[in-house]
């Protein structure tokens, strides 16, 4: 009866040895390749630092003006532009300008990386069912595994700093753009693709002339989700040394500073709303022909 009431476990000693072996293995791996990886990510670090300094050191009216222009180009809507400018003025007035700029920098760079990596992966998934079969479970893991768990190996490999933070953000934020690129391409009307084939289009001609243009609304929904999710990671990323709005939030949690936490938290929300409206507006504007007429 003991067999039924007690779950048959591995021996305590063996279990400890197994865990130790895994830890040791990974530590050796990080000792061997940590430096090489750091060198690999160095250009990204330089770019991130440069971009952050650029945002923080430029005169604030100039930064707001540039953001306002981008908002107009994206959304073509004066309400969005006005709201954006007002929000940034309030954020600055409440003393959160520097942190907001740091967050803006890391979100922009993370989104850029996610787009550059995610869209080609999505395309590969749409092209081959085998690739889709391999990547989908990986994306599931990335989306569901608690972020703290993958912070451990990232920090073991690269230490505390901006790059591990960036990687953590990307791991969390990249799945939607991959998934929606894949979905968007797979949803392209079969007959239209057949027509491209019938006129002798090559694979690149089909991809860039038909599939991607027709998948753009979905790809843009993916970009939008990626931005939202990377903003959601700001606080967790600040635990491993990323500057920005997450740092004061973290301090507010440990010291029970309600106002500090609320203000910085709301600043993140405001950034999210601005990004969302601008990227959605952009996605709609480039697909105008779909909604005109009829």
């Amino acid at each position: 009866m003991e067999f039924l009431s007690e779950f048959p476990t591995m021996g305590n000693q063996e279990l400890r040895d197994l865990k130790k072996a895994i830890d040791r293995g990974f530590r050796e791996f990080s000792r061997a390749y940590g430096e090489a990886l750091e060198t690999f990510f160095e250009p990204i670090l330089y770019f991130l630092v440069w971009f952050e300094k650029l945002l923080q050191n430029s005169p604030w009216p100039l930064v707001i003006a540039v953001i306002a222009v981008l908002a107009w180009l994206g959304a073509r809507n004066w309400l969005v532009v006005g709201g954006t400018v007002a929000s940034f003025l309030v954020i600055g007035y409440l003393g959160m300008w520097q942190d907001t700029m740091a967050t803006l920098a890391i979100i922009s760079v993370a989104t850029l990386i996610c787009i550059v990596v995610g869209i080609p992966v999505g395309i590969a998934m749409a092209r081959s069912d085998r690739v889709q079969g391999l990547v989908t479970p990986l994306l599931d893991v990335m989306q569901t595994i608690p972020s703290f768990v993958y912070l451990i190996p990232v920090v073991m490999l690269l230490g505390i700093g901006k790059v591990p933070g960036l990687i953590a953000v990307c791991i969390y934020a990249i799945p939607p753009i991959v998934r929606l690129t894949n979905l968007g391409i797979r949803l392209v009307d079969r007959e239209v693709l057949e027509a491209a084939d019938a006129f002798g289009a090559s694979y690149p001609q089909k991809l860039f002339g038909v599939q991607i243009p027709l998948a753009l609304p979905n790809i843009f929904a993916g970009v939008n989700q990626t931005i939202m999710m990377s903003l959601a990671m700001v606080v967790i990323a600040s635990m491993i040394g990323v500057q920005g709005l997450g740092v004061p939030v973290l301090r507010a949690i440990s010291n029970q500073y309600l106002a500090l936490g609320l203000m910085n938290g709301l600043a993140i929300v405001v950034l999210a709303i601005i990004f969302d409206r601008i990227s959605q507006g952009f996605g709609k504007n480039i697909q105008k022909h779909r909604w005109d007429g009829h």
Binding site: D189, E191, E194, V210, P213, H289
Partner: peptide, 12 residues
């Protein structure tokens, strides 16, 4: 060349 029942034109 080919003509299709559902037209199969490029909407963009």
């Amino acid at each position: 060349s080919m003509v299709f029942q559902g037209f199969a034109l490029l909407p963009h």
